[in-house]
Design a protein around this nucleic acid. Structure first.
Length: 298
DNA sequence: GAACCGTGGAT
DNA sequence: TATCCAAGGTT
C-alpha cells in the first residue's frame, strides 16, 4: 500500500489557530489558575452538557473543592448534591471516585500521563486526551463531537460525522495533528471552539468560518446528511425521567427521606420501584433501615 | 455495537 | 408542541 498519507496541513492549522486567538471565549477552565484539576472538573461537567449550564456549578465546585483531596474527603453524596441539575449524575459519582484515586494513587495531583488518566473512573478516550492536551499541553488527537463535525465537513465533505467515532476518524485526526506539541494543543482547542461557535450542528455560520474556502462540504454544495438517522432520544415517560425526579427530591433533602415521599414523584409503582432500585444499584442512592433513603455517605 | 444514562434551551 | 442537541462513558 502506498497511499499518500494526509500530512499535517498548515493551510488548515494557520487560519483556524489565528481565528482562535481572536475569538476564543474566556472560560474559567481556560485560565491558568484553573490548573489540571479545574480542567478535569470542567471536562466531566461538559460531557453532554452545554457550557452555559456548567459555568455556575463549576465555580461553586472549585471554590468548595479546590484540590482533588478536598473532594475525596467528603461523602460521594455531597458530590451528587453539588452536581445540581447538570444531568447524568453518575458523572458526579465518577468525578468523586476519580478524585479519590488521584489522592490515593497519584499524590493528589491530576496525572499528566494519558494512560493513567484513562484508567481513572469516568475518563474515556476523549477526556483523557482533553486533560492531557489542555492541562499539560501535550500532543493528542482530541475528538469530541465538535471536532468530529468540523473534520466531517471541512475534510470529509459530510454534513455530520458517523453516530459513533470510527477508526477512520481517529486516523484522520492523528494525521491532521500539528507536529509541534504546543501547536497541537492549540489546534485541539481551536478546532473544538470552531465547532462550538461557528461550525455548529444545526445552522453553521460559514460566513464567519476561517476555512470556509477550503471546506469540502461547502465545495460539494453543502449536501444534506444521507447516513442513518442521528440518534434521537425520547425522554418523557422513561426510567431516566423517573430517576431524575427521585434524585431531585434526595438532593434537596437534608435528612433521610421516607419511601412515601419518593412515591409521590411518580404514580406508576413498577417503574418507580425499578428506577429507585437502579439508583441504589448505581450507588447514587443509599437505602437505610425503615424504608428511608439518602444520598450516599460512602 | 447498541442501549442506557438527565436536563433544559433553542428552533 | 415536538424535535434537536449539548466538550461522553460504561455496560
Amino acid at each position: 500500500m502506498t497511499a499518500a498519507p494526509t500530512p499535517a496541513d498548515a493551510s488548515l492549522h494557520t487560519p483556524v489557530i489565528a481565528w482562535f486567538e481572536t475569538h476564543a471565549r474566556d472560560l474559567p477552565w481556560r485560565r491558568p489558575e484553573a490548573g489540571p484539576w479545574g480542567v478535569m472538573v470542567s471536562e466531566f461537567m461538559l460531557q453532554q452538557t452545554p457550557v452555559s449550564r456548567v459555568l455556575p456549578v463549576y465555580e461553586q465546585w472549585l471554590a468548595r473543592w479546590p484540590r482533588p483531596a478536598d473532594l475525596a474527603a467528603e461523602p460521594p453524596g455531597e458530590a451528587v448534591r453539588a452536581w445540581g441539575r447538570l444531568g447524568y449524575p453518575r458523572r458526579a459519582l465518577r468525578l468523586h471516585a476519580a478524585a479519590s484515586a488521584i489522592t490515593e494513587l497519584h499524590g493528589g495531583e491530576v496525572p499528566s500521563d494519558h494512560a493513567e488518566l484513562l484508567a481513572l473512573p469516568g475518563v474515556g478516550e476523549y477526556t483523557a486526551a482533553a486533560v492531557a492536551s489542555f492541562a499539560y499541553g501535550q500532543r493528542h488527537a482530541v475528538l469530541d463531537t465538535n471536532v468530529r463535525r468540523v473534520f466531517a465537513r471541512a475534510v470529509s465533505g459530510a454534513q455530520y460525522p458517523p453516530n459513533a467515532t470510527t477508526a477512520a476518524e481517529r486516523k484522520l485526526a492523528r494525521e491532521l495533528l500539528p507536529h509541534s506539541e504546543p501547536v497541537a494543543a492549540r489546534w485541539a482547542a481551536a478546532t473544538m471552539e470552531l465547532g462550538a461557535l461557528v461550525c455548529t450542528a444545526r445552522t453553521p455560520d460559514c460566513a464567519r468560518c476561517p476555512i470556509a474556502a477550503r471546506c469540502a462540504w461547502r465545495a460539494a454544495g453543502s449536501p444534506a446528511h444521507d447516513g442513518p438517522p442521528r440518534r434521537g432520544q425520547t425522554y418523557a415517560g422513561t426510567d431516566r425521567q423517573v430517576r431524575g425526579k427521585l434524585l431531585a427530591v434526595l438532593r434537596e433533602a437534608l435528612e433521610p427521606v421516607p419511601q412515601r415521599t419518593l412515591d409521590a414523584v411518580w404514580d406508576e409503582p413498577v417503574q418507580r420501584a425499578r428506577a429507585l432500585d437502579g439508583l441504589v444499584a448505581d450507588g447514587l442512592v443509599e437505602p437505610l433501615p425503615d424504608g428511608l433513603y439518602r444520598l450516599p455517605l460512602t
